[in-house]
Nucleic acid binder design. Structure first.
Length: 530
DNA sequence: TCGGCCGGTCA
DNA sequence: CGTGACCGGCCGA
């Protein structure tokens, strides 16, 4: 653990010393790195982050506190109240927290040794050293830099949505004839199913559902209420989560500094919060307006680069399926190619519906979907969905074999493993409960696919940052969304940085199919889409 | 104040 | 009865 006061942190000699001393061990190094970055010091010598090591060993854990990890992986225990016992780490109470801080620092060194050994024993030392460890610094920098926001535009958008919500709210109260809380599913249930007597659809744990799909079915029976309600939901979602939500997170520098969590997603993906920048609307034109508020700094453009169907390419590779491989190598529209094979038609004859069904089958498959679920989503009977699934597996036999093999192997070992050695324990596979067990099987099928895509993306992210630093560029990675990276690029660096990012992403991993990367430039995040 | 639940957004 | 996330709001403890 490194402790520096303000004066020392600004000393270039100290910075150089830290950078040149590659044995820093810390628990959650990222916030420490961010604090140092505030003072212009880049911590370059991270050797082991005990929280991340613990995450690799057991990604299903929800909390990685030093005390709990110490008890789990070492013979030591943290002292709680200063009472000492054999094997406890306790430096006594000085009344100023020094004792606790010392104990924690010592605990981290013990933990680091234990976790380091564990990583090596589980074959994850390389995954840690080449991907996760360097990623900590990349994420710290991303968070530190943040992404610029057009605050005025965001405020205007929020105000407009607020006005719409108020108007719709009033309209709904008038239709019902009395005031009520539109945001309350309980009160909506009462109005729809008890007072109005509509026939309820599906149920939730606590009563009948009022979700959008259900309301859609009831629409014609009470359009003057349900239509404004659906619209209200839409607008209120945008207003509360994205309008008010994003505004609340804009910093004094007019940028949003979200957190990118490296120890949350059980598959190896990153997660984002405060705010979550992974679910900014994109599908509807109205929602996309929020992406227009994400902008580059003056004199810069945003470069948006995302992988084309990376998960399906991962399936092609992992299953080593000739049909999928051929389609990807041929540079085909994968959903058309799939439809062609499933429905036995010529490429030119694939209808929009067939392509859409093929797309749903492909993605559903990556999630372990079965005939029932497919039928639900396609709005067709289960047996018809089963015919489509059979046709898929007939066309892509190795995919079926891969799925089955993955589950068998996971059950045998108790965990799944990605190509890069990332493990995911799945205890559910041994459950006596059929539904729980089936859920475990779906997780097993998905883990290798989503996990590999995540690994590849992390490699690309680390290499992009490395290339930007090495090249002395001012371009900065400002955002990532699972298979997409956003880079803020000074105008004069565009010619060089654009192709460089593409090249790095394409070769982050060498699969049996090519990795394709879409790139776009924009003066906003929305403009750089497509 | 907290946590479970609902509903909705993304890859 | 498709995987993985986060969040705003409601509501009861």
């Amino acid at each position: 653990m490194v402790w520096l006061d303000d004066r020392l942190m600004n000393d270039p000699l100290v910075a150089a010393a830290i950078g040149g001393h590659p044995r820093v061990r810390a628990h959650h190094a990222k916030p420490i790195m961010r604090a140092l970055l505030q003072s212009g010091v880049e911590l370059a010598g991270l050797h082991l982050d005990t929280a991340i090591a613990a995450y690799l060993i057991d990604p299903a854990e929800t909390r990685y506190s030093v005390g709990e990890l110490l008890a789990k992986y070492t013979p030591f225990e943290m002292s709680i109240d200063g009472a000492t016992a054999s094997g406890q780490l306790d430096f006594g109470d000085h009344g100023d927290g020094r004792g606790a801080a010392s104990a924690e620092a010592l605990a981290v060194t013990h933990l680091a040794d234990a976790l380091d050994r564990e990583l090596r024993e589980q074959g994850m030392a390389e995954l840690y050293a080449t991907i996760e460890n360097p990623l900590v610094r990349v994420l710290a920098k991303m968070e530190h830099v943040g992404i610029a926001v057009a605050t005025d535009e965001l405020r205007q958008l929020n105000a407009s949505l607020t006005a719409d919500v108020e108007r719709l709210g009033t309209e709904l109260q008038v239709v019902v004839g009395r005031p009520f809380n539109i945001n309350s599913p309980v009160q909506l249930r009462e109005i729809l199913y008890t007072e109005r007597g509509l026939v309820p659809g599906k149920k939730t744990k606590t009563g009948f559902s009022t979700d959008a799909a259900t309301l859609e079915k009831l629409r014609d029976q009470w359009p003057e209420f349900i239509e404004p309600l659906l619209r209200y939901r839409e607008v209120e979602k945008l207003r509360s989560t994205y309008g008010a939500g994003l505004l609340a997170e804009v910093g004094p520098d007019a940028r949003i500094h979200a957190t990118f969590n490296q120890t949350v997603a059980r598959t190896g993906r990153l997660s984002s919060d405060q705010p979550n920048l992974h679910n900014i609307p994109v599908r509807s034109e109205e929602g996309r307006r929020f992406r227009k508020a994400f902008v580059p700094a003056t004199g810069c453009m945003l470069l948006v680069a995302d992988y084309n169907q990376i998960e399906l390419r991962c399936i092609a590779h992992l299953a080593n399926d000739p049909g999928l491989i051929e389609a990807f190598i041929g540079g085909r529209d994968i959903h058309s190619a799939t439809a062609e094979r499933i429905f036995g038609v010529l490429a030119a004859d694939v209808t929009v519906e067939q392509r859409s069904k093929a797309k749903m089958v492909s993605y559903g498959l990556a999630y372990g979907m079965e005939a029932y679920g497919l039928g639900q989503r396609l709005g067709i009977p289960t047996d018809e969905a089963a015919v489509i699934l059979d046709a898929y597996f007939l066309a892509f036999p190795n995919v079926k074999a891969y799925m089955e093999h993955t589950v068998v192997e996971a059950r045998k070992r108790g965990y799944t493993e990605t190509l890069f050695g990332r493990r995911r324990p799945i205890a559910e596979l041994m459950s006596s409960n059929f539904r729980v067990r089936q859920a475990g099987e779906r997780q097993a099928m998905n883990a290798g696919i989503q996990g590999l895509a995540a690994d590849i993306f992390k490699v690309a992210l680390v290499r992009i940052d490395e290339a930007l630093v090495r090249g002395g560029h001012r371009s900065r990675v400002v955002l990532q969304v699972h298979d997409e990276v956003v880079v803020e690029v000074p105008d004069e660096e565009r010619v060089e940085v654009g192709p460089m990012v593409i090249e790095i992403m394409r070769h982050a991993a060498e699969l049996v199919v090519p990795l394709e990367v879409n790139v776009a430039w924009g003066a906003t995040w929305a403009d750089a889409k497509g």
